[in-house]
């Protein structure tokens, strides 16, 4: 099974290497967001705890990791539509191989993108203020966040099986999920009813923990809560997604 996973991973990684545009464009968009929020909106947003760019970067990094999961969904939908999955399903291949290969590849891609985004952050004034280990922890949390969202996206991709539908649907649920959170603005600046939603949003919990690790703050509780959420999502969605492999559309 491990061998099948590595073969599938190799297949998807080769695609990214041969079509670098796929990765380049998924980096350009968040860079645009950084510029937009740092220089266009940023002046109007005041946060109490730190300067805005330091506040912003963990949020944008998390959002980028989450949006990267659209590639998971689209990639799987393409495989279904193009007949690749039928080929694999007619072979003695384990049900998890395609999905695991896809998730490993997208996690590798997310590691790369998170690192690029940290560099971009440094260029526009972001600094880690809490030491190297928590900084690595923040990056790891972002990658784990990406993986857990990818597990949900994988299920969507394998259910809908139409790349275009999956693409639009990905944006529809990821936009509110990431924007109605502490990603870009402090929750207390929102109207009361929205604050309730934003506070309960696990994305806020994940980003709070990332900020604590990057900038200093209450570490243990948010980190524990965040890990619980992310691991919980993986544990729930991964088996359901794996089961889709043999399910008929």
């Amino acid at each position: 099974m491990l061998y099948e996973w590595s073969l599938m991973t190799k297949r998807y990684v080769l695609r990214y290497i041969r079509v670098p545009a796929l990765v380049v464009f998924s980096i350009l968009q968040p860079i645009m967001f950084v510029v937009l929020f740092r220089y266009v909106f940023g002046g109007a947003i005041v946060v109490r705890t730190s300067n805005y760019v330091s506040y912003l970067m963990p949020g944008i990094i998390a959002q980028t990791a989450a949006f990267g999961s659209i590639a998971t969904a689209v990639g799987l939908a393409e495989d279904f539509q193009g007949g690749m999955i039928d080929r694999f399903r007619s072979m003695p291949v384990s049900t998890s191989s395609v999905l695991v290969g896809r998730l490993v590849t997208d996690t590798l891609r997310n590691i790369f993108i998170v690192l690029v985004m940290i560099v971009v952050g440094y260029l526009v004034g972001f600094r880690f203020m809490n030491g190297i280990v928590p900084a690595v922890g923040m990056a790891a949390m972002a990658v784990l966040f990406g993986l857990s969202i990818s597990c949900i996206s994988a299920l969507i991709g394998m259910k809908l099986r139409d790349p275009e539908a999956v693409q639009s649907f990905g944006l529809i649920w990821l936009f509110p999920l990431t924007f109605v959170s502490a990603a870009f603005v402090p929750v207390y600046t929102m109207p009361g009813w929205l604050q309730g939603i934003a506070k309960a949003n696990p994305v806020t919990i994940v980003i709070d923990s990332m900020r604590s690790m990057a900038l200093g703050g209450p570490l243990s509780r948010t980190t524990f809560e965040s890990l619980a959420w992310l691991i919980g999502i993986c544990v729930v969605f991964l088996p359901i997604a794996i089961r889709q492999f043999r399910r008929v559309s």
Binding site: R15, D86, R87
Partner: peptide, 11 residues
């Protein structure tokens, strides 16, 4: 099985 689509990886 060789299906209606050429199920091979483009890349």
């Amino acid at each position: 099985l060789a299906g209606q689509y050429a199920a091979v990886d483009e890349y």
